[in-house]
C-alpha cells in the first residue's frame, strides 16, 4: 500500500527563519506516527503543511496520494485535525460545535446528527450533548475536539499535542480513545513533547529539534540505540561542591549533569549506586529507573524535552 504521508526534504520558512528544515517522513497506512520535540522544534509547522493549511516552502509532500498545494480542499475533506488549541465556541453546545464543523464538509444534516450521537458515545460525552462547552473540564473539551475531528470519518487524523495541559487521569482516558482509533485502522499522526505519550501511542516516531529530525524509529528501538537499560538519578544538596562527573568518570558510564540532578546511564543501576557510595558520594536521593525517550532526546541534543 502506498504511504499515507510521504515527505522528502520538506521545508517551511517564515521569512528568513527556517521552522522545518528539510525533513524526510514516511507514514504507512494504519500506523501511529509521532513527532517528538521540544517547544519550537517545528512540529506544528510540519503538521500544518501535512494538513494542507500552510503552503510548503520547499520539498516534496504527498498526503493520501494528494498534493496539498493543488488538491488542498480535496485532501482536507479526508483528514481529521485536532489542533494544538481547542478553538471550540464556548457559548455553543457540544453538539452545535460539531454540527457547524460537520456542515463545513457539506455532510447532510441527518448524517451529522447520527454521527454526533456515535462520536459523543465514543468519546464518552453522550450525556453532554446539549451542554454548553464553557463549563466542561480541559479533558472533556479535548474529547469534544477529537469528536469534532472525526465528524467527516477521516482516514488520517492529525493530533497536535493531544494531551498537553491535562491531568494524568484525563490523559489516560484520551490515550485509550486514541488507541481505539488506531485499532479501527485509522492512521494517526501526532506531535508531543511527552515521552510517555510517544511511548504509549506511537509505533514509530521521529525526534525533532530545531526543525530537523535527529532520530527515527520505534520507541523501544530508539531507547535501545541511544540509551542504556537503566538510568540512575542522583540528587545532591544545593551546596554540594564535589564534581560528581569527575568522580564517576572512571566507571565509564555516560553522565549528564542537569541543574537539579545528575543522570548516570548504566545497564545495572544498583551496581552503579553501590559504586558511587564506594567512591564516597552521598546523594540525598537516588532513583533507579528504566530509560525512556527523554534520555534519548538528552543524548541526541544535550537538552531536556520539557524545560
Amino acid at each position: 500500500m502506498p504511504p499515507v504521508v510521504e515527505a522528502r526534504g520538506l521545508t517551511k520558512r517564515f521569512g528568513a527563519f527556517t521552522a522545518v528544515d528539510g525533513i524526510d517522513v514516511e507514514v504507512a497506512p494504519g500506523e501511529a506516527f509521532g513527532f517528538l520535540g521540544p517547544n519550537g522544534a517545528g512540529k506544528t509547522s510540519a503538521m500544518r503543511m501535512i494538513g494542507a493549511v500552510s503552503p510548503v516552502t520547499e520539498g516534496h509532500l504527498q498526503v493520501l496520494g494528494l498534493d496539498p498545494g493543488s488538491q488542498g480542499a480535496e485532501l482536507r475533506a479526508r483528514l481529521g485535525v485536532v489542533p494544538q488549541e481547542d478553538a471550540l465556541d464556548q457559548e455553543l453546545t457540544v453538539a452545535e460545535n460539531l454540527a457547524i464543523y460537520g456542515r463545513y464538509f457539506d455532510l447532510p444534516r441527518a448524517v451529522i446528527r447520527e454521527r454526533i450521537d456515535e462520536l459523543l458515545e465514543f468519546v464518552q460525552l453522550a450525556e453532554r450533548r446539549a451542554a454548553q462547552v464553557d463549563p466542561l473540564s480541559g479533558g472533556m473539551k479535548r474529547r469534544v475536539v477529537i469528536a469534532r475531528a472525526l465528524i467527516n470519518d477521516p482516514e488520517l487524523v492529525l493530533l497536535d499535542e493531544p494531551t498537553t495541559g491535562l491531568d494524568p487521569q484525563a490523559r489516560h482516558v484520551l490515550w485509550d480513545r486514541l488507541f481505539r482509533l488506531k485499532q479501527r485502522g485509522i492512521t494517526l499522526l501526532l506531535t508531543t513533547h511527552y515521552m510517555d505519550e510517544a511511548e504509549q501511542l506511537c509505533d514509530r516516531l521521529v525526534v525533532m529539534d530545531r526543525g530537523r529530525i535527529v532520530a527515527e524509529g520505534a520507541p523501544s528501538q530508539l531507547i535501545r540505540e541511544h540509551a542504556t537499560r537503566e538510568v540512575v538519578e542522583l540528587r545532591f544538596p544545593p551546596d554540594h561542591e564535589a564534581d560528581v562527573a569527575t568522580i564517576l568518570a572512571p566507571t565509564g558510564h555516560r553522565i549528564e549533569v542537569l541543574p537539579d540532578r545528575t543522570l548516570v546511564y548504566a545497564d545495572d543501576g544498583d551496581a552503579l549506586v553501590r559504586e558511587a557510595h564506594d567512591r564516597g558520594l552521598e546523594p540525598t536521593a537516588v532513583l533507579t529507573r528504566r530509560s525512556g525517550l527523554e534520555d534519548v532526546f538528552l543524548r541526541l541534543t544535550g537538552r531536556q524535552l520539557v524545560e
Binding site: V81, P83, A87, Y104
Partner: peptide
C-alpha cells in the same frame, strides 16, 4: 478570541 477560523480552514473551507 475563539480561533474558529483556524479550525475552519482545516476543513474544505478556504
Amino acid at each position: 478570541w475563539v480561533k474558529t477560523y483556524h479550525t475552519a480552514v482545516a476543513s474544505p473551507v478556504r
